[in-house]
Design a protein around this nucleic acid. Structure first.
Lengths: 118, 118
DNA sequence: TTGACGCATTCCTATATGGGTATATGATCG
DNA sequence: CGATCATATACCCATATAGGAATGCGTCAA
C-alpha cells in the first residue's frame, strides 16, 4: 500500500506545502486561479490540481464568474486538524513543560553514554 | 517528483493516521515499542518504521531501558502544525462565520443552476 | 463565426511511500 | 557460550503522488 490519498482526509491534503500556501492566500479572501498562479509561482495546471485536492476535502469552495473561477476558503474543513492539535495544547501550556525539559535532559544524557541514536 | 518525504516536515509525518495514533498514545506517557504494537494493532516492524519517521521529525524521543526502548512524546515538534492552524482560529471564532455561511449558500445556488461540479 | 483567454484534465515519469516477510542487532538469561 | 526476547532494518510490491507538457472546453470579444 502506498501513502493514503491526499483526498482522503484533510491531514494529507494540508501536508503539502503548496496547498497550505494556497489556503493561506485564500484566507485573505477570494482569488481566481490566475491570481493564485501568479502568487504561488508554479504552473497553472499544478495550481488547478492542488485546488482540486483542496476541493475534494472540502477546504475550498468555487464560484464561477465568467471565465474565471473564484476560490474561497472553507475553514470548517480544517477543524479535524485543529481538534487534533488542540489535544496537545495541554502539553505546551501546562507545567508539563518543565517536567518535559527535565526528562529531555535525562534522555539526552543516557543517549550520550549509550548507543548513539540516528 | 513524488509527494514530499514524511521525514521532511511534521505536517507530512502526522498526515498518517497510525502515526497520529502513536503520538496520541504517547501523549499519555512513555511506552515501549511492544506496548505500542499491542495498542495500535499493527505489525511490529511497521510500528518501528512509524516511530522512526516520528523520531526524524523530532516528534518523539527514545530512552533505552534494557532490551526495551521507551518512546516519549516531544510536543514541541508539533508546534509548526499548531502555529499554522492557529492562523485560522480567527476564521472560526470571529463573526466571519456568518458571512461565510451566506456566501456558501450563494455559491451552492450558483453551482446548482450552473455546471455541476465534481 | 473565429480567435483568444481561463481553467481543468489527461498522459507521462520519478519517487516515496505503507504494509508484509525475513533477517540483523543488542541485551538478558541459563 | 547458546538461546531467547525486544527492536530495527532490508527487501519486495502496489499505489499515489507532484511536476511537466499537451490538450480539451467553456466563455467572451471582434
Amino acid at each position: 500500500m502506498a501513502r493514503a490519498a491526499t483526498t482522503q482526509d484533510v491531514f494529507n491534503a494540508v501536508a503539502e506545502r503548496r496547498r497550505r500556501e494556497i489556503l493561506d492566500l485564500l484566507a485573505g479572501g477570494e482569488r481566481s486561479v490566475g491570481d493564485l498562479v501568479a502568487l504561488v509561482g508554479i504552473a497553472q495546471p499544478l495550481v488547478s490540481k492542488h485546488l482540486r485536492v483542496l476541493r475534494e476535502v472540502g477546504a475550498v469552495r468555487v464560484r464561477e464568474e465568467g471565465r474565471q473561477r473564484m476560490y474561497r476558503l472553507n475553514g470548517a474543513a480544517l477543524q479535524p486538524v485543529r481538534d487534533w492539535i488542540r489535544g496537545y495544547e495541554r502539553i505546551w501550556s501546562e507545567r508539563f513543560d518543565r517536567l518535559d525539559a527535565v526528562l529531555d535532559e535525562l534522555t539526552e544524557q543516557e543517549q550520550r553514554d549509550g548507543a548513539d541514536d540516528d
